[in-house]
Design a protein around this nucleic acid. Structure first.
Lengths: 148, 148
DNA sequence: CTAAGGTCGTTTGCCGTCTAACGATTACGC
DNA sequence: GCGTAATCGTTAGACGGCAAACGACCTTAG
């Protein structure tokens, strides 16, 4: 049970739980805030575009969009020019959540990093960035099937 | 989109994906290695005990145990003295995975933290521990309903 | 102009996770 | 001793996430 993997995983679990509690107060589920964030910047994005922006697969976005449409947060509409495409449009309710959700998220970040000095915070970000890069390289390197 | 929450979440996603790829080579799914780890140390644990050790709910362990029993990794048996209890026992296959899985996990940790100096690593662990504590306090504080 | 191929979104099925409701068994109070 | 309460595991249903198969649509080659 390696130290870092263990601690990082447990920490992520707690952070997710804290974020979930905050989102629940606004009627959202974990991850839905990210989907909304994409539409807040680019209303009318397609499921594929959203998936790419979130580093998630398209079926995941489709499922979430269906539930969020039922919840009245967004609407599906097919693109006029290219009928394969579907565009997701925010409703009034979807737009209205922007300020409160962004504030909630800023507050959470602040609470969670409150015990860190500015130096510690910088070093933490730097170290995490390195880890992020290493993990990314690890994933991109292996799956390449050098056929031929 | 706060910096830390974003980076931490994306990093975790990559780390999970890397762990999943490694586990898949041994026929395991994400999280099943943790369940096995508990049994490697305390074979014959109950679902409740495993859940507590993993910081997970009991239904989660029950479902995983069912699938892992089907996969031939463990066996269910009721406790003789207390018939409410169920104990999970490793099979030969479950035991046999210990060495390879632990090695895989050590290797992953090493690869992922390869770009960090020893000082960076220490500071990272320290900072994550603080975050962990803050998030934990945040979760334990709120849910307490001060009724009366 | 038509057939083949590429690009989408959707469906299906699985996994881990949670909460809530259910059922069986043991322990406790009277 | 018997009924009530506490303690378990299980089931049911929802959610985010993934991979694979499917179907509708557009593009392009011939």
């Amino acid at each position: 049970m390696p130290e870092f993997l263990d601690l990082h995983g447990r920490t992520n679990k707690l952070v997710r739980a804290a974020a979930d509690a905050a989102l629940r107060r606004h009627g959202l589920h974990l991850g839905q805030d990210h989907l909304l964030a994409v539409l807040w910047e680019h209303d009318g994005s397609t499921p594929g575009e959203v998936a790419a922006a979130l580093n998630v697969t398209t079926p995941t976005v489709v499922k979430m969009a269906t539930r969020m449409a039922t919840a009245g947060l967004l609407t599906r509409r097919r693109d006029d020019r290219d009928n394969r495409l579907v565009r997701l449009w925010l409703t009034e309710a979807g737009h209205a959540l922007r300020e409160p959700i962004e504030a909630e998220r800023r507050l959470l970040e602040q609470k969670i990093t409150a015990d860190l000095t500015e130096t510690e915070r910088r070093h933490l970000m730097s170290a995490l960035a390195k880890i992020h890069r290493s993990a990314n390289d690890l994933l991109e390197g292996a799956p390449i099937d050098t056929a031929g």
